[in-house]
C-alpha cells in the first residue's frame, strides 16, 4: 500500500449527499478479475451518457458535460470534496479501487458509511471527516477559485488551504500509523510471523489433523 503522509492536489467536487457504492462503481463491473482499471468507470452512470459495459473503451463514449468531474477545471483532481454519508450501500471493495485508480488520494466529507470507510484504509485512500460548516467553506472556495488546491497532512491531522486557514480532523491512531508507514494490514500481520508459527507448532501438537489434510 502507498504511504500517505502529506498530499497537496487539485480538488474536485461531488456535491450531493448519500453517494452510494453503486453510483461509485455499478454492479456490472464486479465480474472483473482485476483490482485495478476501475478508474474509467468511476461514477459511470453520472459520467457518461450511454450505459457502460465491462471491457469497453471508455475514451470513445459520450461524456456528460454536466458532470463536474468532466470539466476541464477539475481535470487531474486528486482530492474529492463530498457530502454526508459518502460510500453507503454494499460492501464492494471495487468502490475504493475505482476512486484510487481514477487518481484520488483523499476524500473529504462530513461523514462516511462504515464499510466504505474501512475499505478505504485497506487501499491507501485517506477518508477525512470535517464538520458540515468546514465542508461548506471548502465548497465555497472550490467554486470561487479555478485550480483550487488543498493540502491534507495526515501527521498533523490537518487540511490546509492556500488562504492560510486550516481544519483539524480526527483519526484512529492505529489506522494513522498504518497509512503513515504505508503498511497494509497484511504487512502488519506478517510482522507477527513468529507468533503465527509458534501458534501453528502448538496447535499441530494437539490438533494434528488440522494440518496436511488437503493435498
Amino acid at each position: 500500500m502507498k504511504a500517505f503522509t502529506r498530499h497537496s492536489g487539485l480538488v474536485g467536487p461531488m456535491d450531493r449527499a448519500n453517494v452510494d457504492t453503486d453510483m461509485i462503481i455499478p454492479k456490472q463491473f464486479l465480474k472483473s478479475i482485476k483490482r485495478s482499471g476501475f478508474g474509467p468507470n468511476l461514477f459511470d452512470e453520472l459520467r457518461y451518457l450511454d450505459s457502460g459495459e465491462p471491457g469497453q473503451d471508455c475514451s470513445m463514449r459520450p461524456l456528460n458535460v454536466e458532470f463536474p468531474l468532466n470539466q476541464q477545471r477539475y481535470s487531474g483532481a486528486s482530492i474529492l470534496l463530498a457530502r454526508t454519508n459518502f460510500g453507503c450501500g454494499s460492501s464492494r471493495e471495487h468502490a475504493p479501487w475505482a476512486l484510487e485508480d481514477y487518481g484520488f488520494r483523499a476524500i473529504i466529507a462530513p461523514s462516511f458509511a462504515d464499510i466504505f470507510y474501512n475499505n478505504c484504509f485497506k487501499n491507501g485512500l485517506l477518508p477525512v471527516v470535517l464538520s458540515e460548516q468546514s465542508v461548506d467553506r471548502l465548497f465555497a472556495g472550490l467554486y470561487l477559485e479555478e485550480g483550487y488546491q488543498l493540502t491534507v497532512d495526515l501527521k498533523d491531522q490537518q487540511v490546509l488551504s492556500s488562504d492560510g486557514s486550516s481544519y483539524d480532523f480526527e483519526i484512529d491512531e492505529f489506522r494513522k500509523q498504518c497509512l503513515l508507514n504505508g503498511l497494509d494490514e497484511i504487512a502488519l500481520t506478517l510482522q507477527e510471523a513468529t507468533s503465527i508459527k509458534r501458534y501453528e507448532t502448538q496447535r499441530a501438537a494437539c490438533h494434528p489433523w488440522v494440518f496436511g489434510a488437503i493435498k
Binding site: E185, I186, T189, L190, E200
Partner: peptide, 8 residues
C-alpha cells in the same frame, strides 16, 4: 488476500 498471505 490477508488469509492467503498470513493464515490469520
Amino acid at each position: 488476500e490477508h488469509v492467503l498471505a498470513s493464515q490469520c
